[in-house]
């Protein structure tokens, strides 16, 4: 018995050690490297400790606009994905467990972000399918009249592409939670307590499902905040989302601006950490 316990304990500790070695340590090392690079301690043109790169980035409006854009687009993508996921998950929860609907809902999960971005380009650009269809139907007089979602100033195309990949996931998640959390019985109970259909949804199903999916919702927000391919293909040149801006700074011809990419990486990590701490506190 003691030997079995020792083996289990060893396996657990070994697992933790392996996780730390393969995941935590490289991440931590990368963060420390980025942090030191951003202060000029390491790097090709290392010049000793300096806040010059932080000051340069913070003195221009580029960083604030990039953070603002990233947060706003991540917020609307999360909101829209959860909203569509809830509507679909609640309406089709029985069909989403198996059968044709389930297969259809699973397909978008396999679509890489770059394909979603190309889909938006094909569908919603100035010369895309939707524009040509509207032109053929006489709704618009010329292709130029179509409000293109590619490189649009409001970032609607980016939100649509991210939502295209995330909403089906949430529909499936909410459908699964509907079953596992006994929501049908809770709704029935609420009905006998006098709750109307709308009150049952608003006071029971939705808060319960959203609360249970809290970790996934936070992760989607973080993923969109740091998303790269979709904003690269569909976004404007300025302002750019955080990852696109960081990569531009990193790959610029002027190597002197490279440390600013690491400043951005540190800022992004800090943002995510604040978000995670806030989520964990709320969960507790």
């Amino acid at each position: 018995m003691t030997t079995k316990k020792s083996i289990i304990s060893l396996a657990n500790n070994g697992g933790i050690a392996l996780y730390c070695l393969l995941v935590v340590f490289p991440m931590l090392a990368a963060f420390v490297y980025a942090f030191l690079y951003s202060f000029g301690v390491v790097g090709v043109f290392s010049e000793g400790v300096t806040v010059r790169h932080w000051a340069a980035l913070f003195s221009s409006s580029e960083l604030a606009r990039s953070i603002g854009l990233s947060i706003v687009l991540a917020f609307f993508t999360t909101l829209l994905s959860v909203f569509i996921g809830l509507l679909t998950g609640l309406a089709l929860h029985e069909h989403l467990r198996k059968g044709v609907f389930s297969t259809i809902a699973h397909i978008p999960l396999a679509i890489p972000p770059v394909v979603a971005a190309f889909a938006i380009i094909q569908l919603c650009s100035g010369s895309g399918f939707a524009a040509r269809l509207l032109l053929a139907c006489g709704v618009i007089g010329s292709l130029a009249e179509f409000p293109s979602l590619v490189h649009d100033t409001l970032g609607i195309g980016i939100v649509c592409a991210f939502t295209l990949t995330a909403a089906p996931f949430f529909a499936l998640l909410f459908a699964a939670l509907y079953e596992s959390e006994n929501v049908r019985h809770l709704e029935e109970l609420a009905a006998t307590l006098g709750a109307s259909r709308l009150q049952r949804r608003w006071r029971v199903s939705i808060p319960l499902l959203v609360r249970r999916a809290g970790a996934n919702i936070t992760l989607l927000f973080v993923a969109v905040l740091g998303g790269y391919e979709i904003p690269l293909l569909l976004g404007l040149q300025s302002p750019q989302m955080l990852s696109v801006l960081a990569h531009r700074k990193y790959a610029m011809f002027d190597l002197a601006e490279k440390p600013q990419a690491f400043v951005l990486a540190v800022v992004y990590t800090a943002l995510v950490m604040v978000l995670l701490v806030f989520f964990m506190k709320k969960k507790r």
Binding site: L189, A191, G194, P207
Partner: peptide
Amino acid sequence: TPAEARHCVYLYQEPLLFPH
């Protein structure tokens, strides 16, 4: 009459409380 208007409260076998 729909369930919400009957004023007949049904209690399940397990104490089904709203977990949130």
